[in-house]
Design a protein around this nucleic acid. Structure first.
Lengths: 351, 351
DNA sequence: CTGAAAGCGCTTACAG
DNA sequence: CTGAAAGCGCTTACAG
C-alpha cells in the first residue's frame, strides 16, 4: 500500500483509533461542519440529518467531547474508613450546597491504613487536576504531609472538616465549638443533680476530643464535682468502644450515674451496656452523646446530645473550597460553628 | 487601532478571555511548544524553564486542559430526599466498587417534590453527557418518564436500585429477594412460638413492599396463623411511621406479640413505641426489621433483621452501569441478591 | 533543551 | 439547511 492509499483508507479515525467527527461525517455522507453542529445542538440542521448523525455518533462510539472543567466544576470529598451516621450528615451538607452552584461532588473513600494501594502523591494530585477537580475536602484529615504538599503545588485548595490536628495556617478548616458544647452537656447533667459523671472520649490525640475533655473538666471543676480515677476514658468514637467502656464504667465500685460520650455512636454503646446490666436509661443512668446524627433521634430512648451543625459545616466547607478555587482569599483559616444541646429522653434527674 | 495592532495586542487570549498556551508562552518568552511540553509532563524541558512555565500557567489561571472522559470515567449516583442509613450503605457499596476501575462517583440529590428547580430533561441529560458522565444509578427510581427517555436518547445507561415499579425491560435494575426475606423473618417469629404477628409495611405501591407483604402472608398462611384486621399496616419506611403505627398496634384490643417491620428505621420506631408503653423488647414484644443497616447493630437491643446486601447491591449496580456504558449487553435486566435473616437481640420466644 | 512547522480535531462566519 | 474555508488551540516529530 502506498502512503496515498493509507490516507484514503484511514476513514478519518484519530491516531488512537477513536472515531472523530470526520469518521462520522464520512459515514453519514455529510460534512464535518454539519456533524459539529449536531454535536453542539445548533438549530440549523434538518431533523432527518440530525437524527442520522446522532445515530452514527453513537454507533461509532464517539467520545471526543472533552469536558470543560469551568462549565462543570467538581470537588473531591474524601472520607477515610467506612461511612457512618456522622459522615452521612456532612456528606448531606456538602451535596446540598453543591446543587445551586452546580458543583459535582465526587465521593471518594480511602482505606484506613496509610500506604496500601494509594497512588503516589504527585500523581494523585495531578490526576485530580487533569480530571477537572477544583478543590479537595477531607473529613478528619487523613492526608499525608506529602499529599498535602502535592495538592498545594498543584494549586488545588484543601479544606479539612473537623481536623485531627490543631489548625495549621496552610490548610483551611471547619469545625464546631467542641469546648463549649462539652461544657454545656456536662452542665446539663450537673443541673439535673448528677455528681458522678463520667466522660467517654474519642481518640485521645484528636483536637476535638481534647477540647471536649477540657469542657467536661471545666464544668466539673466549677461545680466542685470530683473526677475520680477511671471516670475519664477514651475510645475511637465507635459503638464497640462505647459498649466496652460503658460496661467498664458500670463495673466500677462507684459507678457513675451519668455518662457524657464524645459521639452518638459511643453513647448508644453505653445505652446498650446499661440495658445488658438490667439498668434503665434514663431512670438508672443518664447518657449524653455528641453530634446529633440521625442515630440520636432514632435511639430508644431518643438521645440527649450536643448538636454539631454537621450539614452546615459541610455546606460551609464546600463554599470555602469554591472560594479558594476561584482564587479568593478566605478571611480566617479556621472557623467553628456553634454547638447546641438537644435535650431528649436519655437524661433525667439523679435520684 | 488597526486590525494589525489588534492582533499584536491580543497576547494570545482565547475569544472568551481565557488564557491559552500562547498567552503563557508570550509571558514566559518561550514557544507554545515548550509550554505544551510542560503541561504534558514531558522530560525534555530544562528544570528552570519548567518551573517558570508552571508558575505562569498558574498565575494566568490556565484551565485549558479539557478532561478526557475516557481517562476519568464518572458515574452519577442519584438519591431523592435526604440520605439515611439505607442510602449510606448503598453509597458505600458504589463508592468502594468505584475505587478499582477509578470511576468518580458523583453524588447528587434531588428535592423530594416533582418539578421544583429541576432542569428540563433533555438539558439535564445532555449536560450529563457533556460533563463526561458514563451512566446514571438511581436509588428507588424517581426519574420521570421524560427523564428516562432523555437519558436513553443520550445513550446514557440507567441502573435502578430497588425499583419502585415492577422491572421494566428498558431499565436495568438491582434489588434483593424481598419475598423470601419476609417469609424467613415471619417464619423465625412463628418458630419462636409467636402467633399474633403484625406486619408494618413500607410504601404500599412499592414493588419491594408488595413482595414483602406476600412473604409475610405466605408464612402466616402456611402456619395457619390468623392475620386479623389491623395487623397489616403501611408506612413510608421512616421512623415516625414506625412509632405511630407501632403505638397503634399496641393499642389494639388484641395487640401482637411480635412485629415485622419493612425497614430498620420503622423497627426502631416500634421499639420506641414499646418503651414508651413500658414494654420491654424482646421480653414483651419481639421486633424484626428489614435492611440490616448500621442502625440494626447500634439499636438497643440490637435488632434482628433481614439483611439486604446493600453494599453488594451498590457494587453490582456500578459494575452493570459500567458494562452498559461500554456497550456490552447485560444478561438480565433485573437481578436480585439473596437476603439473609440476622438474629440479634430484639426477638425472643413468645411467653 | 528549544522551537518552527506540520498537522489534528474541532468550530464558526458566511456564501450559496 | 449545507459545506468550503479560515482559523483556533493544542501536540508532536524533527532539525538544530
Amino acid at each position: 500500500m502506498t502512503a496515498k492509499t493509507d490516507v484514503v483508507t484511514k476513514d478519518g479515525r484519530a491516531t488512537d483509533g477513536r472515531a472523530t467527527l470526520a469518521t462520522v461525517a464520512d459515514a453519514a455522507g455529510v460534512s464535518v461542519a454539519t456533524v459539529s453542529k449536531v454535536l453542539n445542538g445548533r438549530r440549523d440542521v434538518a431533523p432527518a440529518t440530525r437524527a442520522l448523525v446522532q445515530d452514527l455518533l453513537h454507533s461509532h462510539d464517539y467520545v471526543g467531547r472533552r469536558v470543560d472543567p469551568t462549565r462543570f466544576p467538581r470537588v473531591e470529598l474524601l472520607f477515610h474508613g467506612d461511612l457512618n451516621a456522622y459522615s452521612t450528615e456532612i456528606l448531606q451538607g456538602v451535596v446540598s450546597a453543591g446543587i445551586d452552584p452546580a458543583v459535582a461532588v465526587v465521593v471518594t473513600q480511602r482505606p484506613h491504613g496509610r500506604q496500601p494501594r494509594r497512588p503516589r502523591p504527585v500523581v494523585w494530585a495531578s490526576d485530580l487536576v487533569a480530571a477537572g477537580c477544583q478543590a479537595v475536602i477531607t473529613v478528619v484529615n487523613d492526608l499525608s504531609p506529602a499529599e498535602a504538599t502535592a495538592l498545594a503545588k498543584a494549586r488545588v485548595p484543601l479544606v479539612v472538616i473537623d481536623p485531627v490536628n490543631l489548625p495549621d495556617a496552610r490548610v483551611t478548616s471547619v469545625g464546631a465549638t467542641n469546648f463549649s458544647g462539652a461544657l454545656t452537656a456536662t452542665q446539663h447533667l450537673l443541673d439535673l443533680g448528677h455528681r458522678r459523671i463520667a466522660y467517654l472520649g474519642g481518640i485521645a490525640a484528636a483536637a476535638s476530643n481534647q477540647a471536649r475533655l477540657q469542657g467536661y473538666r471545666g464544668a466539673m471543676e466549677a461545680a466542685a464535682a470530683p473526677v475520680p480515677d477511671g471516670y475519664v476514658r477514651t475510645g475511637n468514637f465507635i459503638y464497640q468502644d462505647g459498649l466496652a467502656e460503658g460496661t467498664a464504667l458500670l463495673d466500677l465500685a462507684e459507678p457513675p450515674t451519668a455518662v457524657f460520650a464524645a459521639s452518638d455512636e459511643m453513647a448508644l454503646g453505653v445505652i446498650e451496656a446499661a440495658r445488658v446490666r438490667g439498668l434503665r436509661v434514663p431512670e438508672d443512668l443518664s447518657v449524653v452523646g455528641f453530634d446529633d446524627t440521625q442515630l440520636a433521634r432514632l435511639a430508644s430512648p431518643p438521645l440527649t446530645t450536643v448538636r454539631q451543625p454537621l450539614r452546615e459545616i459541610g455546606a460551609i466547607a464546600l463554599q470555602r473550597a469554591l472560594r479558594l478555587a476561584a482564587g479568593e482569599k478566605v478571611d480566617s483559616h479556621h472557623i467553628e460553628l456553634a454547638t447546641e444541646l438537644i435535650v431528649r429522653g436519655s437524661t433525667a434527674s439523679a435520684r
